[in-house]
Write a protein that binds this DNA or RNA. Structure first.
Length: 271
DNA sequence: GAACAATGACCAA
DNA sequence: TGGTCCTTGTTCC
């Protein structure tokens, strides 16, 4: 789940559920005990998200933000009403009388100062979901790089928030071979990719899932049986290795690149 | 009950 | 490039 859209959605959800009133904070698992104690009884007064980094702002002297990075399998679980006894390894639980949220398995969950937060922003690239960002800074890196577009899109210093699903899907939708070097990309191609990411990821925040298949290519529109899909959204190539491309029927390929699965259609995506 | 996979990122060499 | 960390759910004996 955790690509940029998840994080921005979590920021909004936390503010909606917990904003403006004191929360009870605890670390049932124990690994965030000191932090949870500092937050307990405080008021959530601001949230922010940049790429895959989530920031929850509390009125806590000297520890302005909780910085959370979900990593590969971190997860938040929200619930209504009084929180039940925690199940499993809950790093952080936020709660009030009407709702609770449990955080499990994050790579990072720490208290940081405003300066610490600024430093994190400084090493993150443009985020398609931040209204103040555009793709220009990323283009400056990409247009000079011999690295593959596939690797550049996953580099959080270049583009923040894109993960393995959006990478595969945006390259498919724009007909770009993943192995193409950044410097062999046209400016128009990059602008189309960026605009596509903005649209797809905003929809991802709204729906809380990744859907990338255009209406004309849905299984229904193509007269194919609806596909059973195990990651929660409708996609062209992600985790579809060996299956027929939804557009041309060619077998979708999978290869490992920098220890991550890369999926693409060798016919639709041109170098 | 073990083995494995997973939408991530860090570090060392 | 390889090893490590974080946790849960699924799959396979």
């Amino acid at each position: 789940m955790p690509e940029g859209h998840t994080i921005h959605r979590l920021a909004a959800d936390h503010l909606a559920v917990f904003g403006g009133r004191p929360v009870r904070a605890s670390s049932p698992q124990g690994r965030f005990d000191a932090g949870a104690r500092a937050l307990d009884g405080r008021v959530l007064d601001g949230v922010d998200a940049h790429g895959k980094h989530l920031f929850l702002g509390f009125d806590t002297p000297g520890a302005d933000w909780v910085h959370i990075h979900l990593g590969l399998y971190g997860k938040f679980g929200f619930g209504e009403g009084t929180a039940p006894a925690p199940v499993g390894a809950v790093r952080l639980r936020l709660a009030h009388d009407d709702a609770y949220a449990d955080l499990r398995g994050p790579t990072a969950c720490e208290l940081i100062t405003q300066e610490g937060k600024d430093a994190l922003h400084a090493r993150l690239g443009c985020d398609p979901l931040r209204d103040s960002d555009d793709g220009e800074k990323a283009w400056g890196r990409i247009r000079l790089s011999r690295t593959s577009v596939a690797a550049l899109l996953m580099d959080q210093k270049v583009v923040a928030g894109v993960g393995n699903v959006y990478r595969a899907e945006v390259l498919f939708r724009n007909g770009i071979d993943p192995t193409r070097a950044g410097r062999d990309l046209d400016r128009e191609e990059w602008e189309a990719i960026w605009a596509d990411l903005v649209g797809l990821m905003k929809e991802g925040v709204r729906n809380n899932r990744i859907d990338t298949v255009r209406p004309e290519h849905t299984p229904e529109a193509m007269g194919r049986p609806p596909r059973v899909d195990d990651h929660g959204g409708e996609v062209y190539v992600y985790r579809r290795a060996g299956a027929a491309c939804l557009v041309c029927g060619t077998e979708v390929r999978r290869e490992e690149l920098a220890a991550r699965n890369l999926f693409w259609c060798p016919a639709c995506q041109k170098n």
